[in-house]
């Protein structure tokens, strides 16, 4: 069980939305994590290289900074099934770049642009993820 947090989640979502608007307003870029990160991998895309690095540095540093300033501890339950996490990571990385976007690029920015392409991608990955969780938790019980 995790606690349903409508207000904190809405507030966090608003912050994510503002971040996406800032990146577009200032630099003209879509705040898509898979797109930004994959272009930093070798051979790195030289265009706007330091901006991409700065965005990722901010993203990675943010939770530590948030914990430091707010005094709140960020609760997290990550699976200890390390082979499973390796497979999951590989699929997430490959799939998000193959499909040209992840939860941020398609899910947030794409839906906000009213893109059909992003809507189809978002419905697909949420649907497949839902089926996966159903199979893992209710068919193959106890592996997660």
């Amino acid at each position: 069980m995790t606690e349903f947090t409508p207000f904190a989640s809405l507030l966090g979502g608003v912050l994510i939305g503002i971040a996406a608007v800032i990146l577009m307003a200032a630099n003209g870029r879509i705040a898509g994590i898979s797109g930004i990160v994959s272009r930093l991998l070798p051979p790195a895309d030289r265009g706007d290289l330091w901006s991409k690095i700065a965005f990722v540095v901010g993203l990675v540093a943010a939770p530590a900074l948030y914990e430091e300033i707010s005094g709140q501890f960020i609760a997290q339950t990550v699976s200890y099934n390390l082979p499973l996490m390796a497979v999951a990571g590989g699929l997430v990385g490959f799939g998000s770049v193959r499909g040209a976007g992840c939860t941020s690029g398609h899910g947030v920015c794409g839906l906000a642009r009213l893109s059909w392409r992003s809507a189809v991608a978002t419905v697909t990955f949420i649907g497949v993820a839902g089926i996966t969780v159903y199979v893992m938790r209710h068919v193959i019980w106890g592996t997660i």
Binding site: I33, V37, L91, V92, G95, G99, A100, F125, V128
Partner: peptide
């Protein structure tokens, strides 16, 4: 096809691990 297969593979990994790219990176310091 790349959009659909990519999104499906991403969804499979997301459902297995519970991480998508942003939260995974923002969890490194945890």
């Amino acid at each position: 096809r790349p959009l659909l297969t990519g999104a499906a593979l991403f969804g499979l990994g997301w459902g297995l691990g519970g991480f998508c790219p942003g939260p995974a990176l923002a969890s490194l310091t945890l």
